[in-house]
Design a protein around this nucleic acid. Structure first.
Lengths: 167, 167
DNA sequence: TATTGTTATACTCTATAACTATA
DNA sequence: TATAGTTATAGAGTATAACAATA
């Protein structure tokens, strides 16, 4: 009787190591980093990550449409719309009609929003510095480049067409 | 009257570039990669990411406790418990009582679960290969190392104690 | 007919804590 | 009292599609 043998047949043969799997490591790193930011910075300001990103995008350009802001912050229009509504409610953002297009809006920060934005840049620098401390100069450079390549490549794999790996 | 000047005072001065901010780039890369996996692999098997990870952990060790599996898959006990319940419901996982500790459980894959696990390793290799294609050998090596360092460093920053950046 | 933006819905995830059963 | 695991609950995030107004 080899019943037991069938069930237990060398369970280690397909030695796949989750901890060496790039997507897993990416996910772990991303979660750890997000957690630091959420706890040490967002929590105090009462901002969510999408709100924080929107403030960064609007603050950088001064006046910008929701669509353009979303493109810069990696958010779709629904997320932008909700983050904007929330920020308006807290008096950090102003939404005006675009005089040149009746459908469009123009976003700009209020004085309160600008104050938060002014804080945001040095805070982000501090975060980045704190995180980057653990890396050598080469690692920092390569990491940035590798992440950019990975994002682009994954994005390409995602296209409905080129989607197939084994083509 | 300098009202206008106050509101609009050089909005570009704190030139913080979200797209160069490491946590943002990490998040973008992670999302893109997750999306590829979810769409091209998980969707077809009907597995969620936690379920996939749990199968990987159990499949690798053959027999393992939920706690130990969670430690290997980066999941807390609640997530493990839910993923396990779901996998048991689909006939992919078996939960037995730990004879040496009445509180503990022992997880092992069913034959069906083993079949999925057997598929999982080559699939993961294909994903990894497809993603890594875009990187040079050096970039791959450095990326792995940098992610490990970053995770560890962020984890350290998260400790209730050492939490302070400016100590 | 296409586009900008808002709203609705349903689903997944996450975090916390309460709970059980053992130790 | 502490630990292994389960269950409950509420909050936040996500995706999708339906919708209104305008182009």
């Amino acid at each position: 009787m080899k019943k037991k043998a069938e069930v237990g047949e060398d369970p280690l043969n397909g030695t796949f190591r989750l901890e060496n799997f790039l997507p897993y490591r990416l996910s772990v790193a991303e979660e750890a980093v997000s957690r630091v930011i959420a706890r040490d910075h967002l929590a105090q300001s009462g901002l969510t990550m999408p709100e924080w990103r929107l403030i960064a995008a609007v603050g950088r350009f001064g006046v910008i449409s929701p669509t353009a802001a979303g493109a810069h912050a990696g958010m779709d229009k629904v997320k932008v719309s909700r983050a904007a509504a929330s920020l308006v409610g807290r008096g950090l953002l102003r939404q005006a009609h675009d005089p040149s297009d009746g459908r469009g809006r123009l976003l700009r920060l209020t004085r309160k929003g600008l104050a938060i934005h002014a804080d945001l840049a040095p805070t982000a620098d501090a975060i980045e510095t704190a995180l980057m401390e653990s890396l050598t100069k080469t690692e920092r450079t390569v990491l940035h480049k590798a992440l950019a390549k990975l994002s682009a490549h994954a994005g390409m794999l995602l296209r409905p067409n080129g989607a197939d790996v084994h083509e």
